[in-house]
Simulated assay, not measured.
Amino acid sequence: MKRLTLILTALLISTFILAGCSDDKDETKESDNNVVNEENNDGKDNEDDSDKSASEITTEDQLDLTLGDTGKFDTTLGTYEMTVESAELLEELDGEESQFDYLILINLSIKNTSDHDLDVEDLMYSMEVTEMIDGSGFSDQSHVFESVEELTGVIKPGEEISGQFISDIYESDEYYFRERSGNVAAGGSNQVIWTIPADEAK
C-alpha cells in the first residue's frame, strides 16, 4: 500500500512539473509572438513613414516658359518656384573662355513654397541647359567663376533668394533651361522648361 501511495505521489508531482513547463513554453511562445508582431507593426509603421515622405508629383509640366516667367516645381525634395529673369551669352568670363562656343549666364530667383527647409545646391544640381530639346544638357559651373553669384545654402519656407547659373554651351538659335530630363523620367519632378532665344540672351 505504501508503495502504491509513493508511486501515485510521484506521478502527481511529475504531472504538476510537466504542466508548469508547458505553461512556461506557452508564455514564451506568446512572448515571442508578441515580439514578432511588434516588429512587424514597426516595419509597417516604417513603411507608412517612407510612403508619407515620398512626395506625389501633382503639379503639371510647364514646357513653354520664357524669360521673366515663373515655373512651379513639385519634386521629391519639396515644392518651390523659380523665376528666370534674364540670360546672357559670353565668350569669356573671369579670364576663362568657353570650352564650346559660348558661356550662358542665367539670372534667376528661387522661392521655397514647401513647409520645410530646402538645400539650394540640391535644387540647382537638378537643373541643366541645352541647345537641343531632345539632347542631354550641361550643369551649373558657377563655382568655377569668382564673379558669378553661386546659389548655395538653405532656403526656409516662404523665403526667396537670387543668384546665377552658368555653363558652357554650343551656338544655337535658342537654348533650353530645364529640370534634368533623367530626374523627370525617374519621377523625381515635374518638367519645367524655359526657352531662351539667342537674340534675347544679351
Rank of each mutant, 00 (worst) to 15 (best):
Ile57His: 02
Asp64Thr: 11
Glu56Lys: 13
Thr9Arg: 04
Leu103Glu: 07
Ser31Val: 02
Phe100Lys: 09
Glu97Met: 05
Ile110Trp: 07
Glu128Lys: 11
Ser142Asp: 12
Asn183Thr: 10
Arg3Lys: 14
Lys52Tyr: 11
Leu118Ile: 00
Leu8Phe: 06
Phe145Gly: 00
Lys29Tyr: 13
Leu103Lys: 09
Asp61Ala: 04
Thr66Val: 15
Trp194Thr: 13
Ile106Asp: 01
Gln99Leu: 15
Ile106Arg: 10
Thr79Gly: 00
Gly163Thr: 04
Leu108Ile: 01
Ala19Cys: 04
Thr5Ile: 15
Thr66Phe: 03
Asn190Asp: 00
Leu12Phe: 14
Lys111Asn: 08
Thr75Leu: 03
Glu85Thr: 15
Val36Pro: 02
Tyr170Pro: 06
Asn107Phe: 02
Phe145Leu: 07
Gly163Lys: 02
Ala201Tyr: 07
Asp101Asn: 14
Asp122Tyr: 08
Ile133Arg: 14
Ile155Ser: 06
Leu18Gln: 02
Leu65Ser: 11
Leu108Pro: 10
Pro197Glu: 05
Thr28Ile: 14
Phe138Val: 10
Leu6Glu: 13
Gly163Cys: 06
Leu118Gly: 03
Tyr102Lys: 06
Val184Arg: 11
Leu6Asp: 13
Lys25Leu: 15
Ser167Asp: 08
Met132Leu: 13
Glu92Asp: 11
Leu4Asn: 03
Leu11Ser: 07
Asp101Arg: 09
Ser139Arg: 10
Asn41Leu: 15
Val192Gly: 06
Ser50Arg: 13
Cys21Val: 13
Gly188Asn: 12
Ile169Glu: 04
Met1Trp: 06
Ser147Gln: 09
Met82Tyr: 05
Glu131Met: 09
Glu179Ile: 01
Glu131Val: 01
Asn41Met: 15
Asn33Lys: 15
Thr66Glu: 12
Pro197Trp: 06
Glu179Arg: 09
Ile155Gln: 08
Val120Met: 02
Lys29Phe: 14
Leu151Arg: 04
Thr28Ala: 12
Asn41Trp: 12
Ile133Asn: 03
Asn34Lys: 11
Leu18Asp: 04
Thr83Ser: 10
Gly163Val: 10
Ile166Gln: 12
Ala198His: 11
Asp45Met: 05
Ala185Trp: 11
Ser126Pro: 11
Gly43Trp: 00
Lys2Trp: 13
Lys202Ile: 10
